[in-house]
Structures are given as structure tokens and as C-alpha cells.
Amino acid sequence: MSIAVRSTNRPHLARQVRLEWDPVREQHVLLAPEGVLVLNQTGAIILGLCDGERTVDGIVEELGRRYDRVVGDEVRDFLSRLAAKRWVELGGE
């Protein structure tokens, strides 16, 4: 099951999902009805940029400003996996 992520999608977290900082693990976590995803730093930054306004291209571009090496395919793959779980909604094009 793979959901196509377009460059013009404007992803945002599904409404039943929360992004939180866990002070115990000192990592960001994504909380959903029956699951927890402990995020690495990049994952947390990507999701922090998923505000429903930025496009996928805009997110990749913003990451490029912060990091030397940004692989657009990895960002799209990450969003696709979360969209398949319905933790992220890809949003309007």
C-alpha cells in the first residue's frame, strides 16, 4: 500500500494525531489513537513544517535551507507512510 505524494500537496497532521515533545525520552513523538511514533530529529522537523499551508516542495525547500543534504524522495516516502496510516492528511493541491 503506497499513497502517492505530489509536490503540490499541502500536508497536515490528521486531527486525531498530536505531535509532542517527550521530556522523558528527550525526543519528539507522534501520538495517535493506538500508536506512538518516536521521531528522529528530521522526522520531527518535517512534521513541524506540515502546517497545511506549505506544499511538499516548500517543505523540501525549507529543509534544504537548514541541512546540506536533503533527499526529496525520503521526505515524500516518510509522508506517504504516515498518510497510509492516516496520521498525516496530504491536503489540497
Partner: peptide, 8 residues
Amino acid sequence: ARALGVLQ
């Protein structure tokens, strides 16, 4: 529980 790490 929260101090122990519980999130859900």
C-alpha cells in the same frame, strides 16, 4: 506514569 515515560 508520565514521569516513567507513558504517553498514551
